[in-house]
Computed example of a mutant assay.
Amino acid sequence: MTRQGVHKGRGALSNSDGRYERFQHEAVDDGWGSLEAESEHEKPQTQIQPDRSRSILAHNDSPDVPFDRSINPYRGCEHGCVYCFARPTHAFLGLSPGLDFETKLFAKYDAASLLRREISRPGYQPSPIALGANTDPYQPLEKKLRLTRQILEVLAEAKHPATIVTKSALVLRDLDILTAMAKQRLVRVCVSLTSLDPRLSRIMEPRAASPQRRLDTVAALSRSGVPVTVLTAPLIPAINDHELEALLEAAAEAGAGHAGYVLLRLPLEIKDLFEEWLETHFPDRKNRVLARLKAMRGGKLYDARFGRRMSGEGPEAQLLSRRFKLACRRLGLEPNRETWSLDVSLFRRPMEDKGQMSLL
């Protein structure tokens, strides 16, 4: 049932039924202010359930991303970014892409053993595995469950290349593994940086690390020899796009060697969630933000075409791309998708957990 209101530490303002549900529900005030009273006292709590997936590698053939396989240890993400493009996947579980996505989480407790089994198969051919292609592998839940660390341990043992995308400082916990992998060109960490303004960052990403902590994370990784990419993603017209050059300057100063950007994407249910968010946090800019997005998306709020969905089209989108390239050139940053060089030649199949060693 839809319940509107700002909840501390949460990004979505409602919890509408997913697109596959037979019925759509809407909360209606009975005239006694019951909805307001409930919204004021209701604090959505995080719930964790096991994910029973029998495989762990997800494959894709998208030309828009520099990897063809990925691992997501968690479904849903507690960081609460309202614009997260993974939100619509919760509809497949019969849950809402709204508050459910950031409060009803699923953990793949068998992720490491499933990975070991899949990359041990005789016909397996290695290619960089992306951790965090959908949801953040270092969201708050990881501090306790350590599923991402277990995955990295398997990858390090097999000398399998991997990339990580996160907006959490928790990645530094695994610096011992990352440093060893980096010496063999087996890992790259991508840190998402959306704003240098702590207040704006908190509105955009309620439970993610602060901008300064992310920059400190970039610096710590860089000092340890781990190659770092900073992703200024997403860029939202009239909200944070004016910070592009400042974000890249801060990233370069912290030690990042590569950079990337993504224009805001609003597929499926995210469109309505984002409009609610604008109405609540930036009502004076709502119409301007949506109008500029449409101008960069061929008159629509979203365009799913390959080659357009990440960067948009039209004069304003071209200007954004030009600004990014000029800033990267001035700062000595390499565009991320042009330098995806990790070593696959060192890969060795790990021994499966069968209690018996291989004869050969």
Rank of each mutant, 00 (worst) to 15 (best):
L152F: 04
E153T: 11
L200Y: 06
A208M: 02
V230A: 09
T194V: 15
Q212I: 02
P234I: 11
E157V: 06
A220F: 00
A180W: 01
R188F: 01
S195M: 04
S192C: 14
A158M: 00
Q184G: 14
V154N: 01
E205H: 11
I177V: 04
L200M: 07
L170G: 03
A208P: 09
A256F: 10
C190M: 15
D216W: 11
N240V: 11
E245W: 03
H160M: 05
L172T: 15
L248G: 13
I177W: 07
P198D: 00
E205A: 13
E157M: 09
E205R: 02
L178H: 00
T194P: 09
T194C: 14
L175Y: 04
A251V: 12
R223T: 14
K183V: 04
L170I: 01
E249F: 06
L215N: 03
Q184N: 15
R202V: 06
S195I: 07
T229S: 10
E243S: 12
A233M: 12
L244K: 05
R185M: 08
N240E: 03
A209L: 05
D197K: 00
S168P: 03
A238C: 14
V187F: 00
H242D: 10
R199L: 14
V189F: 02
L155N: 00
T163G: 07
V191K: 08
Q184A: 15
R223Q: 15
I203E: 13
L247N: 14
A219M: 05
R199C: 09
D176M: 07
